[in-house]
């Protein structure tokens, strides 16, 4: 079932396979054409999509979706047009796409708010806040930032437990997102 495909990267993470250090204050390459500057050390737990965590993916997680093409979903192996990006999409539509994708992963009560223009790597991007409850019933908050670039979607998605972690990390994450530079 599709669900297990999505869970797979997290399972890999949980088994501690192939995890690399993302050092602070050094530019990190994301996808083919973006670099970001992390404020703190992270653990890179998967490469595709690039995903970082400090305490574990159920607690805090940043995912970098790069160069998503029209007709492709954010996550590999997902079928169903409502999960697919289309180059004609407006920011409101992409917000809906993220909500649907988070739900597909097992999250519930997913809500987005405060949709606004946000600079992204020199482009006019947009960002929005998220709130949801994870499959493990942990209350979570999130922040997404995205842009359309050469007809493709770049989207960075941060999520963390409302209890302590979102508040503790959000300032660093905003700086990280703001540091994005297009090569």
């Amino acid at each position: 079932m599709v669900r297990f495909l999505l869970v797979l990267p997290l399972v890999l993470a949980l088994s501690g396979c192939a995890t690399a250090l993302v050092a602070p204050d050094r530019p990190a390459e994301i996808g083919n054409d973006v670099t970001v500057m992390p404020q703190r050390a992270w653990n890179r737990i998967t490469n595709d999509p690039e995903a970082w965590t400090t305490q574990g993916p159920q607690i805090d997680l940043i995912r970098f979706f790069s160069g998503i093409r029209s007709g492709d979903a954010l996550l590999a192996g997902v079928r169903g047009s409502r999960f697919d990006f289309d180059a004609k999409m407006l920011p409101n539509d992409i917000q809906d796409l993220v909500i649907a994708t988070l739900q597909l992963e097992g999250n519930k009560a997913v809500r987005a708010d405060n949709l606004a223009p946000c600079p992204f790597g020199g482009d006019k991007g947009f960002c929005f806040d998220l709130a949801f409850v994870s499959a493990d019933d942990l209350e979570m908050k999130g922040l997404a930032i995205a842009r359309k670039h050469d007809g493709r979607l770049d989207l960075f998605l941060f999520q963390a437990a409302s209890e302590y972690y979102y508040g503790e990390m959000i300032s660093d994450v905003r700086k990280l997102f703001a540091s994005a530079q297009t090569q």
């Binding site: 949980l14 159920q58 607690i59 493990d136 019933d137 942990l138």
Partner: peptide
């Protein structure tokens, strides 16, 4: 619940 998640990590 947060503790359980920490425990898994």
């Amino acid at each position: 619940k947060l503790h359980n998640a920490l425990g898994r990590s």
